[in-house]
Design a protein around this nucleic acid. Structure first.
Lengths: 191, 191
DNA sequence: GTCTATAAAGAGATAGAC
DNA sequence: GTCTATCTCTTTATAGAC
């Protein structure tokens, strides 16, 4: 891994753990095993490095979601697979957490990948649910767009509850709860 | 309002806007119109002041939730009233956001009110839903605890989506979505 | 109680040698 | 490309006068 790569990876970890405000250039350099001169040679400063880190994390998150959501199978099963996927629940969502960082939200450049990624995720889930309705798997009265927002919100909020509780339990409950509600809208093939 | 009160109120605002790490004693003093000597006379330091601020916010949040949830009426209506209550959506939840503050979560003292408040909220919503089931308003198969976690997660996650989008829309969609799912579990009195 | 002075440490860079 | 030196602000206090 090149020095530039190690700097980006260290920044990704620190942004996840401590957020933008809580992450200093010095901490990034130490974790990457690079000196100041090295960091300012490859990047113009903290915002530039953060942008590279956020973009890489956003790309990764999108690819992982797409892996579950584009799989073959019923819409509910794909949504279930996505929600039940192994996650570092107590660390939270590396993109969602940036939403609480005032300096990130104040910068159109840094904010853009955050907005784009969560917007894409809602849209993609909406497609999957709409497909389920079109195929006769789900209640035609189900609003795909709203339900997609609900599912993404359960994920993001589940992280918050888990971190507050210091336990994965509320996250699992919230996911199980929304899947239970969704199951009631699955059209019974026997009916 | 006393100087101590103004300091606590300023801290509450700043914790909401910028989080614990992003809030400096100097910023607190300026917003409160108080000098350093004044602040350090009334409080031992930033953590002490933050604790007072967090506790006050937690008490307020609990009282507001209780106002909707203890009202007369059907369980679904009370949950709806709670979710639909007027909120400063783009500012997010002043308690939930602290979950992303590593220094808050690392301090058992600062963390306690956060954990307590969100734990109480899940428990209280669970009671309301269980009551709905017991009264025959809701499908007996509905798991009150899990559904309560889902509802609280939708709120917390809805804030995240709204902030990411820079718009209240995804929050409203997520809330409408979960209420739509819940409506399908309401027992039809005509049946 | 509130004010001003002082200060050690960290944040976030820039400059120039190697 | 990487290193060390230097620099300006900010953070988070403490000390002591008023």
């Amino acid at each position: 891994m090149t020095t530039a790569d190690r700097l980006v990876e260290s920044t990704r970890e620190l942004l996840w753990e401590r957020g933008y405000t809580g992450t200093s250039p010095k901490a990034i350099q130490q974790r990457a095993g690079a000196g100041q001169g090295s960091m300012y040679h490859h990047f113009t400063g903290k915002p530039d490095l953060a942008l590279a880190a956020i973009r890489r994390t956003a790309d990764e998150m999108r690819a992982q979601a797409e892996a579950q959501l584009s799989a073959p199978g019923a819409a509910v099963d794909r949504v279930t697979a996505y929600l039940r996927r192994e996650r570092d629940v107590l660390k939270g969502c590396p993109i969602g957490r940036l939403t609480q960082d005032p300096d990130v939200m104040a910068s159109p450049t840094l904010r853009e990948p955050v907005e784009e990624t969560l917007g894409w995720l809602r849209e993609r889930l909406s497609q999957v649910l709409a497909e389920g309705v079109a195929r006769g798997e789900l209640d035609p009265a189900l609003d795909a767009r709203e339900t997609a927002a609900t599912v993404v919100a359960v994920l993001q909020g589940g992280y918050v509850l888990a971190r507050a509780a210091g336990s994965v339990e509320p996250f699992d409950q919230a996911v199980t709860g929304v899947l239970g509600l969704l199951a009631a809208r699955v059209v019974d093939p026997a009916a």
